[in-house]
Nucleic acid binder design. Structure first.
Length: 525
RNA sequence: GGCUCCGUAGCCAAGUGGCUAAGGCAACGGAUUGCAAAUCCGUCAUCGUCGGUUCGACUCCGACCGGAGCCUCCA
């Protein structure tokens, strides 16, 4: 089955064909760095990181760009509030963003985001595009600003499915004095005193919001890119305008596939995590009230939108990543601590399996070296155990899911099936006991290696978790072994009252004991 | 008002014009265990409502109900 990708432009899944065979250029709209990232900001990067991993696994050479918007009204206002420069604020928040990406297993570099261009470092490229647009008649200067002329762009609105007449009918667009059409948007904004400004042929000013992406995508990836991504909220006006100005400038298709991820929603609180939410539409007369309500909501802050760093204090980042990938990327995700905790529970079985495997095989799951390229997996093509056949089937199901518009939710389901299969195999052959049928170990390792392969594509189970108690010098485990020994003696003497007392008291201390046939294991939680 | 999208079991969630509608969490029954834990096996849905198209629809079309997003420089 060929890879198929849902394209917002056509509103359907299309066979994936790149501009250049074997290569994929990918541009994801990054954050405006004016405040700490919240969970919603992680959705796009995690999904596109997974997409890059899968495309790479499928044999493509992928170049991925995520831009940093480091000049904008919100930055200016925020910097003023905090009495710091826009540069300093941007630097601080960019670092926060990068730190969070790293924690979420999204790398900066060849294994992840290849380029992170900054808007302020591409002013010249933006001005070049603006100049070209003016020259071609797609844009016009107006008292220090420059506007894109939407009516000159024949297919304006094709991405979001809007027409200029619809937009007029909506009357939601405030007409700025002098603009030729209400939908015309700023390419260049003349600066007010005290604002960041760059010299330009149209006077000192700063770029409009959309132009930076056009400029940076063009510079780094070329006139036509393969995939352009971002949150669903960016489809209009941001991506629509970006597309319009880019194609008007170059005369070439800007992006083959537009991919939009669904937004994170705080559970119980309608609306997206990051901002206010208001219903409107029925009462256009109530504009003022609506606006006031919006402001109030903005001040109230982001309900349910703890910063990512606060979230990491409560939940394992791997759990959060898994949580994000368990749902299809185009669906909205309902976010709550309960949901993530539930995901955490569902992952425990994997960690147990890894421990079991280590006991059985004498090597860590994390040291297994899985195939990194799709193709026939030699370990699975050998005639052998019935397990091997089953593994091949599961692997194919996984690939079919991912080929279908990166259906990570379906792929996650296969991971759980694989877990069950391997646990059953271990049980059938008593592989975690002294009575193990050692001849079955290679088949088990093949299965575990496959699990590693499939999980790696999702960016999970790649590395062992850092030991929580790094300060512990082994005392804790020593004490536990002592307690376990004492309890084992009690059990041997059928003194179950003592044995159960020990176990119950340990439970109260959040320590779980597991009596296996030949030993007793303990773990926290 | 305009433009999109969604509605699958107690909860989360994948998927399909026709064989048994993935998987997870929870619950229940069983195997295992001294009892537990962990693991395995099993039980648990006719797919918002009403029409239409079709030999046949949960899957296509329409209406309605319910929910979400955008039209406001939020990823």
């Amino acid at each position: 089955m060929p890879l198929r990708v849902y394209n917002t432009l056509s509103r359907q899944k299309e066979d994936f064909q790149t501009v250049e065979p074997g290569k994929v250029s990918m541009y994801l709209c990054g954050p405006t760095v004016y405040k700490p990232a919240h969970i919603g900001h992680m959705v796009g990067p995690v999904i596109f990181d997974t997409i890059k991993r899968y495309l790479t696994y499928s044999g493509y050479k992928v170049t991925w760009v995520v831009n940093i918007t480091d000049v904008d009204d919100k930055l200016i206002n925020r910097a003023n509030e905090r009495k710091m420069t826009v540069e300093a604020l941007a630097q601080e928040m960019t670092q926060d963003y990068f730190d969070n990406l790293k924690t979420m297993a999204v790398a900066i570099g060849a294994d992840g985001i290849d380029h992170t261009p900054y808007a302020t470092q591409h002013i010249q490229e933006m001005q070049d595009i603006i100049a070209t647009l003016i020259e071609k008649g797609f844009a016009y200067p107006l008292s220090g600003d420059v506007y894109f002329n939407c009516t000159k762009d024949e297919d304006y609105g094709k991405l979001s499915g809007r027409s200029l007449t619809d937009m007029l009918a909506g009357t939601r667009i405030e007409t700025h004095g002098g603009k030729q059409h209400p939908a015309d948007f700023a390419l260049w904004k003349g600066s007010k005193p005290g604002e960041p400004a760059w010299p330009s042929p149209w006077g000192p000013g700063r770029p409009g919001w959309h132009i930076e992406c056009s400029a940076m995508a063009k510079k780094i990836l070329g006139d036509s890119i393969d995939i352009h991504g971002g949150g669903l909220d960016l489809m209009f006006p941001h991506h629509e305008n970006e597309l319009a100005q880019s194609e008007s400038c170059t005369g070439k298709p800007f992006a083959r596939y537009w991919m939009h991820n669904g937004l994170m929603q705080a559970s119980g609180a309608p609306g997206k995590v990051g901002g206010g939410h208001d219903k409107h539409g029925d009462k256009p007369a109530d504009l003022t009230a609506v606006k006031e309500a919006q402001e109030a909501n903005k001040l109230a802050g982001s309900k349910g939108a703890a910063s990512v760093k606060e979230l990491f204090a409560k939940h394992d980042p791997e759990t959060i990543r898994f949580f994000l990938l368990a749902t299809h990327y185009r669906s909205p995700i309902d976010f709550s601590d309960e949901r993530i905790a539930e995901t955490g529970k569902s992952l425990e079985g994997f960690y147990r399996l890894f421990e079991t495997y280590e006991r059985a095989a004498g090597q860590s799951f994390y040291t297994l070296k899985p195939a990194t390229i799709r193709g026939n997996n030699p370990a699975l093509s050998e005639e052998g155990d019935a397990l091997v056949t089953e593994l091949s089937t599961l692997r194919q199901r996984y690939l079919d899911s991912m080929d279908d518009d990166f259906n990570t939710g379906g792929a996650v389901g296969v991971l759980f099936d694989l877990r069950k299969t391997l646990n059953a195999f271990i049980g059938d052959h008593k592989l975690d006991t002294a009575a193990a049928d050692k001849s079955k170990l290679p088949a088990l390792t093949a299965g575990m290696t496959l699990l590693k392969e499939l999980a790696s594509i999702l960016g999970v189970f790649r590395e062992a978790k850092a030991k929580a108690a790094s300060a512990d010098d082994g005392l804790l485990d020593g004490l536990m072994q002592l307690v376990i020994q004492i309890r084992a003696d009690a059990r041997k003497n059928k003194n179950f009252a003592v044995a159960d007392l020990i176990r119950n008291k340990l439970n109260e201390l959040k320590v779980t004991l597991e009596d296996r046939t030949d030993q007793t294991l303990w773990r926290r939680g």
